[in-house]
Design a protein around this nucleic acid. Structure first.
Length: 548
RNA sequence: GCGCCUGUAGCUCAGUGGAUAGAGCGUCGGCCUCCGGAGCCGAAGGUCGCAGGUUCGAAUCCUGUCGGGCGCGCCA
């Protein structure tokens, strides 16, 4: 709203010659900020400061011309525009404009906070988690799951079409190892050195159907593979159930085996060969990754004829892009950063837009329990499963924890602390505000009071004005989140909005039969606050309870 | 050794070149005749690791340096 007004003012100022046009290649980035000091106005733009350099003019002069070009007065969305400080233009919004804007939220709550961003309509594939099904998901997988799903939600809010994809290996040596481990436990033998030791292996061993344990052909090798595949699928189904309880649902489960079976890997390798990007050495086939800036070349086909994992990656890129995606996003743990360049290099070598392959790395999570770091080796069987974590702190609190932190920073997660503080967790604070409003609305209904259909004229007092102005910011918060592909801004905003509501609640009596008119107006404002809290939480995949 | 990430309040973390660097938790002090006290109000607490540089302006960008994490396979 304010952004549009400032942008329009800019165009008027340049059209009239009051300001010079933007130099070629400079974007008009109208940054709308909230002044640190509320007395400076509702909003401020630092546009003049940002343009001082490209326009080669003093910021104050630009700000002056910009402020002059902003249409102010009654009937306009902005009632006051003033230059302040080094070149800010402080803006004061008209109550009527805010009221009308908030009415649109109540008219169509589902659309409130869905924005038409610059990437609107883009088809994007987001692949995340992708843990091989050799054991249950651990707390180590939690970050990828939440970060991935949160990213998808933010992209969707920005109008993008998102496919959530999970990639796993159902045919490799680990599957055989898993089978051997299960059979060993079943037979009462020690688990092989490189096998899997967790309790889940024993559970699988006891549930393993005799027919599979024996093997279709009766040979031990066949039995091992069959058991491995059976166990792997059981585990995969368990992983899906765990993710389900997190609120994470995948659209596509893709196996590495299918990439080979469908010829994607072979065709991708052929494509690289045709482009002259491959060479043979020491019996292996290498990709000339250094030609694209990598620090060494990478093996695609081993000297024993087996393709590498990297070969599968290459095939997968072509397979994904063949499905019509405009953009691919991978979410990997920070320990995989060494493989980022080679995948992008290969994509570029095959003729794709390098920028279409985006790889986001999540920082490390140190899970700590009572001050002691929890180790997470599936093979050693010493780990905390994601299911256990969720049983202790719940998906809403866990989601908030990851949503409020940057994806690529290392963080400490003390499980005991998270449990102990769970009732003091900001997520409950925000949910409480929502439940409190729901309670107020129920109370009002009992008293025969209804919210006014329109907020027009309802921002009478300073309490209303303050809360309404914060609600108004929501779409811009979502827009920023979609642009930055991050959710921290949303948690910060939700907390701020909850705080503003609690303050409003303290100062303004909402349900008041003695003053039905004012009550109706305040109910309308409280209702749009509730919608905004619910949408902010919904954007994060967190529930918005009617009662707690 | 080389590469990537990272260092902000006692703790966990926000802060996308802009005005007086914020939140939660913890600590201290107040607020329950009244719509939900999972709440509200206030206080203490900071050389933004350190040193240079870039410019009107740097927690933010650049260089160096110190500390932490992770990588540097014909593993996945």
């Amino acid at each position: 709203m304010a952004r549009d007004a400032v942008e329009a003012a800019w165009h008027r100022a340049t059209a009239s010659g009051a300001l010079p046009p933007l130099p070629e290649g400079t974007a008009l980035d109208v940054a709308i900020e909230r002044p640190a000091n509320v007395e400076h106005g509702d909003l401020a733009t630092s546009l003049a400061l940002r343009l001082a350099r490209p326009l080669r003019r003093p910021p104050a002069a630009i700000a002056g011309a910009l402020a002059d070009a902003i249409t102010v007065g009654s009937g306009e969305p902005i009632v006051e525009a003033a230059v302040a400080g080094p070149g800010f233009v402080n803006l004061r919004l008209a109550d009527a404009a805010i009221e009308a804007f908030l009415d649109t939220a109540r008219a169509e709550p589902a659309a409130w906070g869905r924005v038409d961003g610059p990437r609107s309509g883009r088809r994007v594939n987001v692949e995340f988690v992708s843990a091989n099904p050799t054991g249950p998901l651990t707390v180590g997988n939690a970050r990828g799951a939440f970060v991935g799903d949160l990213l998808c939600r933010v992209l969707e809010a920005g109008g993008q079409q998102v496919t959530r994809e999970y990639y796993f290996n159902d045919s490799g040596a680990q599957v055989r190892n898993l089978g051997a481990s299960v059979l060993a436990v079943r037979a009462g033998d020690p688990v092989p050195e490189d096998g899997y030791h967790g309790d889940y292996v024993a559970d699988l061993a006891s549930e393993l159907p005799a027919g599979i344990a024996a093997g279709a052909e009766g040979s031990p090798e066949a039995a091992t593979w069959e058991t491995g595949r059976w166990a792997s699928e059981r585990i995969r189904a368990g992983i899906e159930a765990t993710l389900d309880s997190l609120g994470v649902h995948f659209d596509v489960w893709k196996t590495e085996g299918s990439l080979h079976a469908e010829g994607w890997v072979d065709r991708a390798v052929e494509r690289l060969r045709a482009g002259g990007h491959l060479y043979e050495q020491d019996g292996a086939l290498w990709f000339r990754s250094t030609a694209f800036g990598d620090d060494k070349d990478r093996v695609v086909i081993r000297s024993n004829g087996e393709p590498t994992y990297f070969a599968s990656d290459i095939g997968y890129v072509t397979e994904k892009l063949s499905r019509g995606f405009d953009h691919l996003i991978y979410i990997w743990g920070a320990d995989h950063h060494g493989t980022v360049a080679r995948v992008q290099n290969a994509a570029q070598a095959m003729g794709y837009d390098r920028a279409a392959v985006e790889i986001l790395l999540t920082g490390w999570v140190s899970f700590v329990r009572g001050g002691v770091e929890v180790s997470m080796s599936k093979r050693a069987g010493t780990f905390v499963s994601l299911d256990e974590l969720l049983a202790e702190i719940g998906p809403d609190a866990a989601r908030w924890f990851f949503a409020s932190r940057g994806a690529n920073v290392n963080i400490d997660f003390d499980i005991e602390l998270a449990k102990k503080q769970s009732n003091e967790n900001p997520v409950y604070y925000v949910q409480y505000a929502h439940a409190r409003i729901a309670s107020i609305l129920r109370k009002a209904a009992e008293a025969g009071l209804a919210a006014a259909p329109s907020l027009r004229g309802s921002l009478a007092g300073p309490e209303e004005a303050t809360l309404a102005r914060i609600v108004t910011r929501f779409p811009e918060v979502v827009e920023d989140a979609a642009e930055a592909q991050e959710t921290q801004g949303v948690t910060t905003y939700a907390t701020e909005l909850a705080t503003a509501f609690h303050a409003f609640y303290r100062d303004a009596k909402v349900v008041d039969a003695a003053n039905a008119g004012r009550s109706a107006a305040r109910l309308a404002l409280v209702d749009v606050t509730r919608i905004t809290l619910a949408n902010a939480l919904g954007l994060l995949g967190i529930s918005a309870p009617e009662a707690m």
